[in-house]
Design a protein around this nucleic acid. Structure first.
Lengths: 193, 193
DNA sequence: ATTAAATCTTAATCTGGTTCAAGGTCCACC
DNA sequence: GGTGGACCTTGAACCAGATTAAGATTTAAT
């Protein structure tokens, strides 16, 4: 599978020489996912950090009532997975699945740790990645605390216009923290009457 | 000011020798804050990453209506600040202030970058710190999406028992995403009738 | 092509939580 | 020791969004 995308991603924050790329390439596991296919399931330890090369993945939490709550969508160029399970090696409370046919690279935990030891600049890469991710999480939190469903939907559409193609509305509703029915109402109002 | 706490914190994830500690100590700026004092205010660029040595700080967002929404509390041993403003050097949308008399260390951005260059193991420290922070943020997001105010309050009390001493209830309500009035109602129900 | 399943919409009703307004409590400060 | 101010509580009216149930539309499998 083509690794130019993932290296372009690394090189947004750090420089890599051929030797380093070779090491990284040698541990990445490429996989093709069919739409709907599960990557991680509740109860199993997350063995890999996941890079989305193409397509779109979704990570969600299923509560006691059986309702799903979307934590994040991951498009091409994003990393995803359950960091809690991955870090602590405890069973995951989330599920991750493909929303469209997708190509991903798995980075197994042991290999990731090896790479981090061997190339400290990768620590820098992931430090920056996670730092930015915190900013996004805080932004979303603020949105949920202070904006109406209507405003949240508008911001979501602006922020992730491409997602509305891939993603069924019910998952967008879930991401926004509302029901599909209410999103439907919002959309009708928005579209004129 | 006593730096043993902050180094103990570093050493939870990385080992530091005396030379490294000296470098770090030489750039940390210690400060004492009075209860209520502002550390960062809306509209100004966040110049420092902030370590809380003792006491308790709070970071919050003030929306268009003038309501405050608490993003995080930071107790002794925690780092805090507006990572967006700090990273991008854009005006902060958050305020940070002391909830009790507190001691903090400021780590100015330029010094932090210098330290990260000089001691790559600090990249590792902050990578782990941020990685864990993402897990917490996701946990809170899930709570807000799937649990009732009642459950959220219960979980908060269990998770941060010490905070209920420092923190006025109205800020806990804000953190939970409800009004003080409704928190009051929840507390009454909880305490018998 | 046909059917079944998943998704999206509509409308009526209901509820968790807000808003508004008032009163009570606990300080700090002159 | 009283007065002002921040905080907490209470209750009534209200609303954003949930729930329930039904129908309409799209998608995918046979």
């Amino acid at each position: 599978m083509d690794t130019s995308g993932i290296f372009a991603q690394f090189e947004r924050h750090i420089a890599l020489d051929e030797k380093e790329k070779l090491s990284i390439r040698s541990v990445l596991i490429s996989a093709r996912l069919r739409q709907g296919e599960f990557v991680e399931t509740v109860g199993k330890v997350t063995a890999n950090f996941i890079y989305v090369n193409s397509g779109c993945l979704m990570t969600y939490y299923t509560d006691a009532d059986g309702s799903d709550h979307v934590i994040q969508f991951a498009m091409a160029g994003w990393w995803t997975g359950d960091l809690h399970s991955f870090t602590k090696e405890e069973p995951s409370i989330y599920s991750t699945r493909a929303l469209a046919d997708s190509e991903v690279f798995y980075l197994p935990k042991a290999d990731m740790e090896m790479l981090l030891q061997k190339f400290p600049k990768l620590e820098r890469y992931f430090r920056i990645l996670f730092q930015n991710s915190i900013v996004s999480h805080q932004y979303r939190l603020i949105q949920n605390l202070s904006a109406t469903a209507d405003q949240r939907y508008e911001n979501f559409s602006k922020r992730y216009p491409s997602l509305e193609q891939y993603v069924p509305l019910k998952y967008i509703a879930s991401y926004l923290g509302i029901t599909p029915e209410f999103l439907s109402k919002i959309r009708r109002k928005r579209s004129g009457h």
